[in-house]
C-alpha cells in the first residue's frame, strides 16, 4: 500500500501529525497509509526507504538535527539540507516541509525545491486545507508514475525487439531519468554489447589465426 511518510527527530511531533493526517484521509475516503520515521544517518537510506515502503509523499521537519534516537547522537543535517540531496534524484517526488518556524531563512531559500512549506501551527489549525493537498500530490504522483512505467515498458520492449527508432531511444532515456530506475541505462548496455562484440571479433580473429596456422602446417 502506498504511504505518506513523516520524517521527524521528535516522535511526539510526528505521531501527532500522523494522527491528524490519518483522520483527514479517513474523511477523504483515502486508503493511503501514514508512516513515521526518524532521520536516517545516511542520506542514501531515504531512497531505499521510499522504495521499500512504497512512499508517495514525504513530509520533512526542518530541525532534524535536534534529537537523538540512538546512542550515536542527532544527525548532522537539517531538512533544508536534506531536500537538496533528495532532489538530485527525486525530481518530481512530492516533498513538503512541516515545521514550527516555517519562516526560517534557510528553509524559505529552498522554497522552490519543496512542494510547500507549512507551519506546524497552521497545519493543526487548518488541517482540512493541507491534508487534501497531500492526498492530491500522492494521487498525481502515483498516476504519473504508473503512466510513465507503462510507456517505459512499451519502449523497452521495442528496443529489445530491435524495432526502435532514434526518437524512441531519447524518450526512453527521459523516462529513465524521471523514474530514476536503479538499474543501468541503455548507454551502458550498448557499451557492453559493443565491448562484447569487440571481444567476439577478437575471438573471431584468433579463430582465423589458429585456422590459418593449422592450414599452413
Amino acid at each position: 500500500m502506498a504511504a505518506i511518510a513523516i520524517i521527524d527527530d521528535n516522535p511526539d511531533q510526528s505521531t501527532t501529525v500522523q494522527n491528524n493526517i490519518e483522520i483527514g484521509l479517513l474523511e477523504l475516503g483515502s486508503e493511503l497509509e501514514v508512516i513515521t520515521a526518524t532521520p536516517f544517518r545516511e542520506v542514501q537510506e531515504y531512497f531505499s526507504f521510499i522504495q521499500d515502503k512504497n512512499v508517495v509523499v514525504l513530509i520533512l521537519d526542518e530541525k532534524l538535527n535536534d534529537q537523538s534516537n540512538d546512542d550515536v547522537g542527532p544527525v548532522e543535517y537539517k531538512g533544508s539540507q536534506l531536500i537538496s540531496i533528495l532532489r538530485k534524484q527525486l525530481k518530481d517526488f512530492p516533498i513538503f516541509a512541516l515545521t514550527v518556524i516555517h519562516t526560517d531563512e534557510d528553509l524559505t531559500s529552498k522554497y522552490s525545491e519543496y512542494d510547500d512549506i507549512i507551519g506546524r501551527n497552521e497545519f493543526y489549525s487548518d488541517s482540512e486545507k493541507y491534508i487534501p493537498k497531500f492526498w492530491r500530490a500522492a494521487k498525481n504522483y502515483m498516476k504519473e508514475n504508473s503512466d510513465a512505467f507503462s510507456e517505459y515498458n512499451r519502449l523497452a520492449r521495442e528496443v529489445s525487439a530491435g524495432i526502435s527508432n532514434p526518437n524512441s531511444m531519447k524518450e526512453l532515456q527521459a523516462l529513465q531519468a524521471k523514474l530514476e530506475l536503479p538499474f543501468s541505462g541503455f548507454d551502458d548496455r550498448n557499451a557492453w554489447l559493443k565491448k562484447y562484440e569487440e571481444q567476439i571479433s577478437e575471438l573471431e580473429k584468433l579463430n582465423q589465426l589458429l585456422k590459418s596456422k593449422l592450414e599452413d602446417s
Binding site: 511526539d12 511531533q13 501527532t16 501529525v17 494522527n19 491528524n20 483522520i23 530541525k63 514550527v100 518556524i101 506546524r120 501551527n121 497545519f123 493543526y124 489549525s125
Partner: peptide
C-alpha cells in the same frame, strides 16, 4: 525555537485529541 515548538505541540496535541 524550543519554546515555540512546545507551545505548538501543546496546541497540536490538544487539537488532535479532540479530533480523535
Amino acid at each position: 525555537h524550543e519554546t515555540e515548538g512546545s507551545i505548538t505541540q501543546f496546541q497540536g496535541s490538544t487539537n488532535t485529541a479532540q479530533k480523535l
